[in-house]
Design a protein around this nucleic acid. Structure first.
Lengths: 109, 109
DNA sequence: AATATTAATCGTAATATTGCAATATAGTAT
DNA sequence: ATACTATATTGCAATATTACGATTAATATT
């Protein structure tokens, strides 16, 4: 097998999982870290920041973009990347549900 | 290849990626949803809630437990699972960094 | 003790991800 | 036009994930 049974889960569950999957690699966390650090758009020097070859970085950027976590716009012959803040709302909302819940509601553990 | 180059990233980046990976499947989101809904430990009726076979669910539970997102304690001949609220602090903190940032800092996009 | 219940583990097939060399594409500059 | 620069795509090998049947281990019930 190996194929996720997406049909049996809700749209929201699949969407949350997809967002989490986009974050599920240290290189992609590192890319987001970098975009946050420079606090602005960045035109392609991400490759120099990472210990990975250019095609690999390009692939990770594509996954982040597909998931909606970053945006990219063409700027001459380079490309300008930046964080897409709005796209993170769903994930943050999910965490808020968990952490705003009162502690100690569990009957065991 | 297929093997992630964890050595080249920071401890924090690897840890965040590992947490995200644990969330990166709709079944595991569904398990967390269910644990939040019943707001308590649940002894194995998670299998009945999901469209997956018992060994598959057991495997997903193991991943969530390894990542620290849930806890499990033995209760007779069944096992009691519940959310581990504390373990989510890191992920939430990461999102806070992103969303507390002022909007409009991007020069393009 | 014999049987049932609950959940983990093993083995394995199908599929997905990771990483990179090689190549392609598209814009810039000379 | 030619060469250069920046990024994407392709193809492929190594590895990881997903799913489940079969089995196992442990406790409960009769």
């Amino acid at each position: 097998m190996g194929a996720t049974k997406t049909d049996f889960f809700t749209e929201r569950q699949n969407q949350l999982a997809a967002l989490a999957k986009a974050l599920a690699h240290p290189a992609r966390i590192a890319i987001l870290d970098y975009l946050l650090k420079v606090d602005a758009c960045v035109c392609g020097d991400i490759v120099n920041e990472l210990p990975l070859a250019q095609p690999t970085v390009s692939q990770h950027l594509k996954e982040l973009k597909t998931a909606g976590l970053i945006k990219g716009s063409i700027e001459g012959n380079s490309i300008c990347y930046c964080i897409n803040e709005k796209a993170l709302g769903q994930l943050q909302e999910f965490f808020n549900v968990i952490t705003t819940r009162e502690n100690g509601k569990n009957k065991c553990c």
